[in-house]
Design a protein around this nucleic acid. Sequence first.
DNA 1: GGTAGCACCAAAAGC
DNA 2: TGGTGCTACC
Length: 737
Amino acid sequence: MSTATDSTDHLLEGLNPSQREAVTLPDGPALVIAGAGSGKTRVLTSRIGYLLGEGRARPHEVLAITFTNRAAGEMRERVDQLVGASRGMWVMTFHAACGRILRREADRLGYRSNFTIYDQADQVRVVKACLEELGRDPKRFPPRGIHSRISSEKNRLVSATQFRENIGNFFEQVVADVFELYERRLHASNAMDFDDLLVRSVDLLESFDDVRERWQGAFNHLLVDEYQDTNHAQYRIVRLLSDAHRNVFVVGDVDQAIYTWRGADIRNILDFERDFPDARVVRLEQNYRSSQRILDAANAVIENNAGRIEKRLWSDLGMGEPIRVIEAEDEHDEARIVAARIGGLLEGGSSASDIAVFYRTNAQSRVLEDLLVRHGVPYQVIGGPRFYERAEIKDAMAYLSVLDNPSDEIALRRIINQPRRGIGDASVDRLSATAGFSGRSLWTALEDPEGAGLATAAARSVRAFRAMMDDLRDRAVELPVGDLMELLLERNGVIELLEAERTIEASGRIENLQELVGVAREYVARSEEPSLAGFLQEVSLTADADALAAADESGGGRVTLMTLHNAKGLEFDAVFVIGMEQNLFPHARSIEEANIEEERRLCYVAITRARRELVLVYARQRTLFGARGFNAPSQFIAEIPENLIEHERRPAAFGSTTRGGSSSGWQPSSAGATTQLQGIAPRDDAPTLSVGDNVMHDQLGEGVVTGTADGGQVIVRFRSDGSERRLLLAYAPLKRI
DNA sequence: GGTAGCACCAAAAGC
DNA sequence: TGGTGCTACC
């Protein structure tokens, strides 16, 4: 019998022997090799519960690291369900944990604890500004490229100075110059980028013995999920924080490492046993998700990779259905096949939410969406524009950033003339230059606009802006952040302006802003110590507020479309992978860069998402970037043993319009309503319409006239889809209602 | 200061 | 093909 006491018995119920072994391991380093669908989250949460139940750790002594906020939230929830004790426990991402540590120790590094966190767009903007200052042509040196180089150097803990010592060509020379300037600018703005959160934490822990000891003592158990996704900086943090107690419990799967292109270093997991020679290693190979046939396919494919830890998934769910491989004529045929098969599954009683379609590149979703709409299949696309990247949200957040940290020049520049208040680029440049001369911040320069040589009108606007911000800063002291947000939106006049616009887009923006106020209120209600800075920190580390939440809540009853990368961690009864072609998947770029192994891992991830049914589709020809091309079927198809596959080949297409029953009644809608009406005789009973009239269109439904134009044109916004169309009065089937 | 037109480019995306 | 970012204009 194990040493489990009554309080921990229930944590081990239903675990298989390997899972149980992992959960109950003694203190010391541990590596859990967790295959897809092997219950790793369960092992992690049970392990935490077990440590608490055994009295080996108190909640605040546990640091559990995940890679996404979502995963952190789920883990916290499951720990709560298990032992109801996640309060005070650090269950969060690397970035959030580092941010928290850095806020407390900021002064050691010459930062103020209210430092701002720049997101990707901010970072690129700074790079661009640096290039301009250095007089480098952004065409020859694209800011995004320079930025990504700087970021990858930082993730490898290479400083600007170290980088300069090893430059080999002119491009790197420019990168080195920008790198140095970029770091100085961020520091001057009391700002950190995402990489800084990790890099500065390493600096902090390495440079200050007392700080290191304090944080090493703060936790006595460190757990890391998705360890194969750690980059070098994160690896150093794990080492630094676990050095004293060495209770480091990492879970991962090399075969699911699909993020090396963004800095993840699989050597971290491959070398774990070298780093910790006394590490206990547990393999979780029993899969609770898929049929054996699906696992056989996954195993066979991944065995072609060299750099891996030997592992073979098995399941007791039976052999299941054969894997279907289908040849399509082109991407339209492919979409038709998938839509029809999905239709069949739905008729057979499957739930749409149990079905997913994966593709390598986002652009592939479009054709399929068309077909699903025609077939009346409800679907959702994961990915796309994110809540916190929308302009109005970023503007509102920039206001908050300036209120909290007026040194944040990027944020200040963003809002100083937003909404328009007559402070143009020229004025801002003057203010900034004046500030630069006297070594002050742009914010300080706003106190004396005349001193910077601004004209009276501009100076007045600057004073008014500064007065408004000062006032808001005063209010920020007592006002909860939700109320503060509401107040500033009222004061800066954004809502009023949007309301005046009276367009669909504007009311969408208002809704977004209201949602943001709601998010802030919700933050205040939920936090132990709500603050403006805390809210900013949380938001800047959250990128996906709506996309994934929406997937959970409104996702019921919808087929899910997403990229292969987004599929990690999810599972569906039926999985379709489209675009199974050489050059598309594996992607041409990966082939060029000899990165086939990572693409193969992506394929492994895709296959192992399926519970019962897996359909792989390739097209003989496809239009890419406007050009038609032929590709061979993906090499990964050939890597699946033939006896697991059932091939289906459609008879050669005769002409696409006559195929597919449910799409037959559909009429293609051409781009503009005016062209659609070509060849129809003009009518003479056309109504006279003016702006504001409500109208009815035979095909497009109800709408409102928003303008008129020469040649008898009328501009109508339709209620059904919010689209605005230019119609010819003489032809359009319109009547006033 | 706003936008129409045009040239250019094109993988994936967490924090 | 379609989205984006810059220039040239109003």
